[in-house]
Design a protein around this nucleic acid. Structure first.
Lengths: 329, 329
DNA sequence: TACGAACAATAGAGCGCTCCAACAATCGTG
DNA sequence: CACGATTGTTGGAGCGCTCTATTGTTCGTA
């Protein structure tokens, strides 16, 4: 910076102003500085800038499981918004190991990001509250009540209800739910399933199979199901990955989908619409959620808002080919 | 840090040594410092550290298309290796817009990462060479010859040959290739296809359809194909997404896969093995590629190696259910 | 007992930038 | 035409840390 200033015949401060795009610089000097910078191949040092200005221009994003396309799609929304707002995204993926999410989070904090987005975290709420006290946080896919923590999530209960109602309307009664275990949003979906079943008068058919947000969990849950005297006629899976795993296991065991068993997923991730899969599923507006998350964060960083906010997006049922009326006995 | 030092009754320098895990600190003082840090809720400031030490501990990763599961899987390898080496990963996803990859790259450079990993970049080689001159770079999925730039890629020609040979052995002759356009690795795959066709004596059947590494490209290419007097009996797609798009379009047009047309993909991404898709494809060791990329980078950062290196991984054919002998006329 | 080696701890300079207060130059206004 | 207001520019302090050189201590060895 010193060199650029000397070459342009101005002070270091003026170069700084130009680099930050200040309007209080004469056109002539601006172009002289820019010229000198280009000639010298100067690129500002973001670390020094961050240190001096006490803000980094970085938003850290913690992704729970990169393999789930849901995150890629939500990230798209984050990225497009971040780009237009001039934030750089620092991404960390917590591997499935226990506690690794916390480690990644602590690492992030050292870089003093201006804000943090947690995508479907499995972190204990206490950890999230603690972070929220230090830096603005937006949680996606899960509700956390704490100062400095905003949330963006789908109305999961409603989503579950859509799935169950659809199946019930087709005539299904034995509808089981393979849940998402301790994953973000799994709880509300489970509750929503229970409530919807009750509302449809199917309380005695309620059955929740322990799962996880992975394909493997879907397979395992179905494997445990197969061979029962009374198979369910429909499965409501915690997400699309689970659904796909479940379908695989069902067909392997000789149960056609949807002729013999109907399956509904959740998320409407990209592979749900592939011709060969054509999964009936509950759509979440993933990109929009990402965009809104960054919007909330930016507002809070700019101090535009004090009260915490919870944005609830609306789920929609996407009917495809994995659901049909139950087979006549 | 000053506060911690005062509280522990030591100098700032000593606190610094403790925070960096130096071995030349007495156990007693170390625990005193650690204790004081914990009481004060002190967390080191990575920006200041980076500024003073002239290294950031950050590796920037530029991903071309987050939607392609290939990248998520390669990123896994990167992340696990980065974690064990103590690097933090800064991730940027170039959206499909032209030039946005360059913008993201320039943004990264301001944070003075210790190294950069480019996953299947579409950047012009000249841009990569320029970056390589400033900071260690590893390119995955594409060969770039330049100082300071190492590469990790699959032997694409061999991969293409595996696909073509498999189809030829089944008896196919009209084998078309939907290519990956200007995407990384698309060129070598295209060449490999041509060469393999020639070697199998199928030179006159060579036909390359312009594509891209997306599902949509596969659909469009097939749509343009359908309705010809002489349909090909097999399609070699540039990657799994293209393959899946192609299959969709084929079935929609009434051509069963594999009975009427065989399809081979490339990458063996997670959805290729899903029961309903069961795509025959060419496997690339994605995680391993990620790990090796970070290994190369770390070696270069540590100055362990001067010469540039190109790691070529070996592709394997995974036979599943989208290929079969051509239908008898 | 004396001496250099190894270790433990410290002071102080400086990393590349932003920010604040201060300043000169130009402007409009009564 | 003198005055404060505005605009453009500058020097210098300081962000929170690391690093080098230096000093004080303890140890093993002759």
């Amino acid at each position: 910076m010193e060199d650029v200033a000397r070459r342009a015949g101005v002070s270091r401060s003026l170069v700084s102003l130009v680099m930050r795009g200040s309007p209080h610089v004469s056109a002539e000097r601006r172009s002289r500085v820019l010229g000198a910078a280009a000639e010298l191949g100067y690129s500002p040092n973001a670390m020094a800038r961050g240190l001096a200005s006490r803000q980094s221009g970085v938003v850290a994003v913690l992704i729970n499981d990169l393999h789930n396309p849901f995150f890629a799609e939500a990230f798209d929304g984050l990225a497009s918004e971040a780009e237009s707002m001039g934030y750089l995204l620092l991404l960390g993926a917590g591997s499935n190991q226990h506690g690794s999410e916390q480690v990644a989070l602590d690492g992030f904090l050292e870089y003093r990001p201006d804000g943090i987005v947690l995508l479907s975290p499995r972190l204990p709420s206490s950890a999230i509250v603690a972070v929220g006290a230090r830096v603005p946080v937006v949680v996606v896919g899960r509700a956390v009540r704490a100062d400095g923590v905003d949330c963006v999530m789908t109305d999961e209960r409603r989503g579950a209800q859509l799935a169950v109602d659809h199946l019930a309307a087709l005539g299904h009664r034995r509808i089981v739910h393979i849940d998402g275990g301790r994953g973000a949003g799994a709880g509300p979906r489970r509750h929503g399933y229970r409530r919807a079943m009750t509302r449809s008068g199917l309380e005695r058919f309620v059955e929740v199979l322990a799962g996880d947000f992975t394909e493997r969990a879907g397979t395992q849950a179905v494997d445990a199901l197969v061979g029962r005297r009374a198979m369910p006629t429909a499965v409501f899976a915690a997400n699309d990955l689970v659904a796909v795993g479940a379908i695989d296991a069902l067909e392997r065991a000789g149960h056609d989908v949807p002729e013999s068993v109907s399956v509904v997923g959740y998320d409407n991730t990209f592979f749900a619409h592939l011709g060969h899969i054509s999964l009936t599923t509950v759509d979440q507006p993933r990109e929009e959620m990402g965009r809104k998350a960054l919007g909330l964060l930016a507002d809070r960083i700019d101090g535009k808002r004090g009260a915490t906010e919870l944005i609830l997006t609306t789920p929609h049922l996407i009917e495809r080919s994995t659901t049909a009326p139950p087979r006549r006995r």
